[in-house]
Design a binder for these strands. Sequence first.
DNA 1: ATGCCTCTTGGTATCGCTCCCGCCCTGTCG
DNA 2: CGACAGGGCGGGAGCGATACCAAGAGGCAT
Lengths: 338, 338
Amino acid sequence: MNTPRKAPTMADVARLAGVSPMTVSRAFKRDSSVSEATRETILKAADEIGYVFDATASNLRSQKTDFVAVTIPSINNANFADTLRGLSEGLKARGLQTLLGYTDYDIQEEERLIEQLLRRRPEAIVVTGGRHTPRARRMLQNAGIPVVETWDLPEAPIGHVVGFSNALAVRGMVDHFVAQGLTRIAFIGGDADRDTRGSDRREGFIAAMRAQGLDPSRLIAAGAPPISMREGAAAMGRLLDTLPDTQAVICVSDLSAFGALTECQRRGIPVPDRIWIAGFGDYEIAEVSVPSLTTINPFPREIGARTAALLLRVMDGQQEGPATLAIHPQLLIRGSSR
Amino acid sequence: MNTPRKAPTMADVARLAGVSPMTVSRAFKRDSSVSEATRETILKAADEIGYVFDATASNLRSQKTDFVAVTIPSINNANFADTLRGLSEGLKARGLQTLLGYTDYDIQEEERLIEQLLRRRPEAIVVTGGRHTPRARRMLQNAGIPVVETWDLPEAPIGHVVGFSNALAVRGMVDHFVAQGLTRIAFIGGDADRDTRGSDRREGFIAAMRAQGLDPSRLIAAGAPPISMREGAAAMGRLLDTLPDTQAVICVSDLSAFGALTECQRRGIPVPDRIWIAGFGDYEIAEVSVPSLTTINPFPREIGARTAALLLRVMDGQQEGPATLAIHPQLLIRGSSR
DNA sequence: ATGCCTCTTGGTATCGCTCCCGCCCTGTCG
DNA sequence: CGACAGGGCGGGAGCGATACCAAGAGGCAT
């Protein structure tokens, strides 16, 4: 039963309710300055003719969209999904809607995405990571809206920052393993620099090993980031084949770490008795798997929640300059490393 | 270096480029009826003054937003994320952008969400599931845009459908187990009807057991849907405590099935030798875990891709009436059940 | 009764882009 | 040489809501 005739507008509602379009507008805005009786009349009239508020017109005239643009590397990642949840729940309370795009871990794609998103005139933009193409940086700087970079602590932030140092987080893990007496430690990650957070973790591993005076060359590249459980398993296979005396392996994510663990199980190699395994992210599987996985919790949900709170402060004018909120990832020692 | 002055408009670009605003508009629309030389002049001028196309004005005047609204139960679910990827990739090719919202498995929340989304004037709307509040149904019916219900085969579709029967898929699993000679089969799921797909699977289990003349009462309710790995593990614990002679358990999802598997591992109960375990969804973990998990692949990516293709046909006027595209889930027998 | 304040309502002019229509210029053909 | 087609471009109006200004009604203190 689609109505083929044109969709009703506020003017139609106003005519039926016997008021001016302006009053209809106020009624829909929950503006206090319209009497309860009129509002009810109006809403009933609107319902009767099936009026649906037209946000496109509102957006243009009021120069407000109630959009907050968000770019994440991948939707299919529980960590980023958590950040997005924290963010969108915090924003929903203020009637702000997230306008989401995926970059596929590619800063070229991010550039295209940012351009598309900015055309929609969001009131703020949240990006994942601190590395962008020059043009993307320029667009963000000139957008005239609050910008938040997350999941990183960039050296030259564009605007606000809510994140942590991926390199330092991994260093904490390395230092812990070394303090336990281990020396032959490997790292499993992706084979390209597309995933900047993954690269940062690998670089952090290398720097930490060097700082400890240890050999940082046990590096296994497992495929295009983000690497999967399967790829983690395959990488573990290569590691066991080529460097069988490895005592511990740090994986770029819990997913690859779990894959690595399963490869050990298939080969009958006991974890942690023969080799320790650690991941990153504190995904649910890290806690549930047998043995449970040593990992790092970067508090993804908090990143989102604090970003939302920050944006609300900025929009309220309660935040003066650009803010940098440092998140402190937590090292979680579990069954796979003791 | 935010420019405090007003953002430039097409008129500003036109003035600088020495053409009319109309020509600027055509240049940005990649309209063929503007010479290559003029287009270049215009784009250079636009870049020079930092012009950003204003989609809000375009949306209003052209009555087109290039939005396709999408509701999914949760962003933190690899199956729905896959559907969303298939969908948004298919739509991106035509310049359509997905406008996403999460219902949290709640049809009340879905109703609110649909209202918000329709205000943005999307050109089509894709919802997950076939059960909605009466008001949500009405809004969808009267929206005057293509509607697609997915992940289900509703008896009274609102418009188009791309999905499968959750109940029949589970029946296939039950029938397979029975054909293997098992009779004492349990089901682990959520404890509420919020997750309609989960409920459909449980009902499918009960119906299938009845049809086989078997007892369908081995039901464990594990918590609020969607149930997690942890909850799956806890449910398995309860099942082993209360009904230790159970021969096989079908879980509402691979995640809970994996949790159940880990509980068996912790208790030293061999899978599949003592008990079989099956999940639903063919998440990556089902293939990687040791043993790998018997499951059902509903082809989530294809649901999204076919939805996108369908919508493009509809928008091109190549699709006459409402279409129902049935997806045929695949039963995957793996190590956890043989 | 007058002044003033608050609450509620209305009229008008846009917000920035694009639909629609028309004009000019060039090239081709009878 | 005039007619005509078509590509390239411009002018004016309008998409549907709201910012802004103004005004009437009612209440209360002076």
